[in-house]
């Protein structure tokens, strides 16, 4: 099953991520985000971070989920590639995210992503897919 597809936007980039459920779509959106930032093939899973997020609704949860990962990338320089989300109820989630610290000798960064935006943001529980536009 395809994890995500990129969508075109004049100044920025976006994606639609799929899953068998919304939990999986959230994980795939995060995978898509880091695929925009870096070449993930050479990234190992040697580092991990645990996250716990509570928000008002699934859209706010998605916004915070992706932006929290971008914050961690900025401060710890971890390129994440695997996302184990547990206890997902559409308003809150717990996750352990795996990746590796950026190593210029082995990793290729492709472009910076400033943030996930609310523009056209959607977390669709019926279709088990999410849509997000990034500011790049």
């Amino acid at each position: 099953m395809k994890r995500y597809r990129l969508i075109e936007h004049t100044a920025d980039m976006g994606l639609v991520a799929y899953g068998r459920n919304l939990t999986e779509a959230f994980a795939n959106a995060a995978y898509g985000l880091f695929s925009i930032i870096a070449e993930l093939r050479t990234v190992k899973e040697t580092e991990s971070r645990r996250l716990e997020i509570n928000e008002d609704d699934p859209e706010a949860l998605l916004f915070e989920w992706l932006n929290h990962l971008l914050y961690l990338f900025d401060v710890d320089m971890i390129i994440f590639k695997k996302f184990d989300i547990i206890d997902f109820d559409g308003h809150s989630l717990k996750a352990t995210c795996y990746g590796e610290k950026y190593d210029p000798s082995r990793h290729k960064l492709k472009r910076g992503v400033k943030a996930a935006t609310y523009h056209l943001l959607k977390a669709d529980r019926e279709e088990n897919q999410v849509r997000v536009i990034f500011d790049v």
Binding site: D56, F63, V75, K114, Y118
Partner: peptide, 16 residues
């Protein structure tokens, strides 16, 4: 990143 985070934080707050 400082500016990006300020925007994140306050967009969230203002949605509420």
């Amino acid at each position: 990143g400082l500016g990006h985070q300020v925007a994140d934080d306050y967009i969230k707050e203002m949605v509420r």
